[in-house]
Simulated assay, not measured.
Amino acid sequence: MTTEQVEQVRRFNRTVAERVGVLQDHYLGGARPYGQARLLWQIGDEGTHDIRSVRARLGLDSGYVSRLLRALERDGLVVVETHPHDRRVRTVRLTEAGREERALLDERSDALAASLLDPLGARQRDRLASAMAEVERLLTASMVSLEVLDPDHPDAAYCLRSYAAELQELFDGGFDPANSRLPDPGELRAPGGLFLVARLHGEPVGCAGLKLSAGAPAEIKRVWVSPRVRGLGLARRLLSELEERAARHGSDLVRLDTNKALEAATRLYRSSGYTEVPPFNDEPYAHHWFEKRLTPGTP
């Protein structure tokens, strides 16, 4: 990244903070600051929520969320309780007063959005809305985290189940992992490999495995991205991360195979510098085989 890019992001952040009023003690002319209002809105009126999931969605630490909840609870807007089946889990829900204030918050938020658009001409409004959609997409992409997990971790297991379920729907004749040459998940852990899991707001949204067999090219396996985050460049990011890790491991060649039904994946591999080669395994679900040269030890 460049210094100019960093400065532009900082200017944008300052402009947004000033224009939407997050610096004011009483956000949108209400009775509370932005932090409390945002948490109240996130809790919503759909029922009871696990506080941990709400905290993960907002990216806030537990101490700060606890202080915000105490303020909302003191004002009679939320009820915080212990989960009836797990005393380690706390839940939160809106009271009737909380639902009323949230509805008012929605009305005032709509009015604020309209005030941003109102001074502009029709074409400027379209430009602003389109630019905001693009910024939202890119900021969401920047919030995705990658972590190496054991394949038996619940988030990893969720991704693997989702991967298999999607292949079952897409492949002619379905997909049976028992008939595939996919490595056992246990092979995708050190020292023979690794398993990356992508998370957004604390929820697993993608995965990819790397097999590191001694004396053989590295192999990328089980690449999956949740449909709800496709278009954010996550698959390319997973691919690049595994290539870097393979190179640091000393591999100078990485391979993968794919099914003809996975057209987007095939386009991704070609555009990422992979060359189609003759079959290097007898994977029954593969129609295309690819490889890419790496520079060992790449930092």
Rank of each mutant, 00 (worst) to 15 (best):
T275A: 15
R127A: 03
R123H: 02
A286Y: 00
L242P: 11
T275W: 12
V205A: 07
T91E: 02
L234F: 02
L117N: 04
E283G: 12
E166R: 05
G231P: 08
T95I: 05
L104R: 07
R181Q: 14
S145W: 01
R67H: 12
R222W: 00
R161M: 13
G297Q: 10
L182G: 09
R102N: 12
G206F: 11
G273V: 01
E96A: 15
L262A: 13
W289Q: 03
L40T: 06
R52E: 15
E263T: 07
D25N: 06
R90Y: 12
A165G: 02
L139F: 09
A247I: 10
V92Y: 05
R127K: 08
G35P: 06
D50L: 13
E166C: 03
L167T: 12
M1Y: 05
S109Q: 06
V9S: 08
A264L: 10
I51Q: 08
T295Y: 06
W224I: 14
E244M: 04
D184R: 00
R14T: 12
D106N: 04
D61E: 14
K292D: 00
P299D: 12
W224V: 13
H249R: 14
T91P: 04
E263I: 05
R267W: 14
T295K: 06
R137S: 13
V22T: 12
P191E: 08
R10K: 06
L139Y: 09
K260N: 13
L139Q: 11
A103Y: 07
S145C: 03
V197G: 00
P296V: 06
L194S: 08
G297W: 07
H153Y: 07
H83Y: 08
E101H: 08
G21V: 06
K260I: 07
Q168C: 08
P299N: 05
R10M: 04
L23Y: 13
H249W: 14
Y64W: 12
A198T: 03
D110R: 02
H83D: 15
L68P: 05
A157E: 04
F175A: 13
G231S: 10
E4P: 00
Y158G: 03
V65T: 15
A178K: 02
N281G: 10
S53T: 07
V78D: 09
G209E: 03
T140L: 09
A216M: 06
Y27T: 12
G47M: 01
P177D: 15
H26S: 07
L23K: 12
E107D: 00
L138D: 11
L58E: 15
R32G: 03
T48E: 15
N13K: 10
D282Y: 07
V9T: 01
D257E: 15
L105D: 02
E187H: 01
E4H: 08
T48V: 07
V225P: 00
L117I: 05
L256A: 02
A103D: 14
L212P: 02
R74T: 09
R137L: 13
L234W: 04
Q5F: 14
R32C: 03
Q36M: 09
R38K: 13
A141G: 04
T91M: 10
K221D: 01
